[in-house]
Amino acid sequence: MTTTKQIGPESPGTLPSLPMTQDSSAHKVSRWQRTTGALRRAATAPFAGLEALRQTGRSYRHFLLPALNGAIGDQLALRGDQRAIRLSFRRHDADVPAIDLDLTDGPRPTVVFVHGLMGDEHIWQTGPAGLLRYGPRLAADLPHVRCLYVRYNTGRHISENGRALHQLLTQLLQAWPDAVTDLTLVGHSMGGLVIRSAGYYASEELHQAREAEAGSAAAAPWLAYLRQVFLLGVPNEGSFLEQNSFLTALALRRFDLRLARLLADTIDRRSSGIRDLRHARLVDEDWQNPHADDLVPPRTKVPPLPGVQYHVLAASLLKNAESALAQYFGDGLVGGHSATGSVFRRAEQVHVRIFPRQHHGTLLADADVYEYIRERLAANGGN
């Protein structure tokens, strides 16, 4: 005979039927919440991505805009695009005319920093993890030195930026003649070429004024204040990367293939500023010359300015900076031979220093490079 035992709540080893129903319902609700949550995140993901891109763009806008100008800045300027950078002094991420710099803190040695291709004034101010670079460090270590920063459109011809820098420095000294005791220019990469070009146009203006015997004292006033020029990783004899780009496009055009011509056309769309780097063209006549695209084009010699101390600072990826490899590849972007520049090699006022096991970028944030600059400024009355 089979008996059926009534199982009650008090029976050991059993579970009430009601809690089982509640756990099952809770499990179903939890699974539904997870599913709807996943669907909601999937639906809003594109908007979250766009917001992230917007925030990234805002955070890195001082990288994106200079890069755009370096690539096609000449085209932007030609059509009056508002994204085209105009050469100007910079403070707090804004252009500042020379007259509005408010240099009322007394007469001081003044250092003007000029960035390189696709850069801006921030390369002199901050680095990774907020690391202070040369500008703020000099302001802290040499409190009597004034630091100014220039931003320019690196896609334009080097000579166009050189003439504009000459005009800007002229405006600086005309507006604040008693605020500057002496002037130092510091340029990185293309910025050094722009500085050399500015010196060329200033000396030409001064020479013409003296020949005309008309107001030569008012011509290129900043030259009388210029004491030192620091050239950091500057392709004074041209960039091997741009030379290779030119040769590649030239070779592709020899093939009667549509793809080859398309590739050559793409390479040839690089900006005027980048093209000028092939042989470091510093004056208008060099790129305006009908033979400018020859394998060995004519090039105007631009010697050091008389009475000015030049400091040519180059980097070498290799320990032995004198080796053939180091002379060609140099800091990875500028060859060693190009950085030291043949035009500087016999000039007594030129001091050359090579920093081994460094690359093009570390010249902007190296303790030894900074100490070299600081010591020369201090010895020149910046302490």
Rank of each mutant, 00 (worst) to 15 (best):
A140C: 08
G187H: 11
G191I: 09
R156K: 15
N153A: 07
R146P: 06
W176K: 05
G127R: 04
R146F: 00
P136V: 05
G187Q: 05
G135W: 04
G119N: 13
R133Q: 13
Q171W: 02
I195G: 10
G116L: 07
G155L: 04
Y149F: 15
W176G: 06
T126A: 12
I123V: 15
R151Y: 02
L193Q: 07
L168V: 05
Y200K: 03
D141V: 03
T184S: 13
H157N: 14
L148F: 06
H122S: 15
V150I: 03
D178Q: 15
S189E: 02
A129E: 12
L132Q: 11
L169M: 12
V180T: 09
D178T: 13
L148W: 01
A179F: 00
L132E: 14
L173W: 01
G191Q: 06
S189Y: 05
G127E: 07
G187E: 06
I158G: 04
Q171P: 07
Y200D: 14
R133C: 11
A139R: 06
I123W: 03
P128L: 11
T154I: 08
P143Y: 01
L193P: 01
H144D: 15
E121N: 12
I158A: 10
Y152S: 04
G155W: 03
R151A: 14
A175S: 15
I195P: 13
V194A: 07
R137W: 04
D178L: 06
Y152P: 11
A179T: 06
G130I: 10
V145H: 04
G127C: 03
L183E: 04
L142T: 03
A164K: 08
W124E: 08
G191S: 10
Y200W: 15
T170D: 14
C147A: 11
E160H: 13
L183F: 02
L173Y: 01
G116E: 00
C147Y: 02
Y152K: 04
L185C: 04
G116A: 08
T184Q: 00
P143N: 03
W176D: 14
E121P: 06
A198D: 01
V114L: 12
I123R: 04
M190L: 15
H157C: 13
Y152M: 08
H157V: 10
L169S: 05
H122F: 11
L183I: 02
G191W: 01
I158D: 12
A179M: 10
A129I: 11
V145R: 01
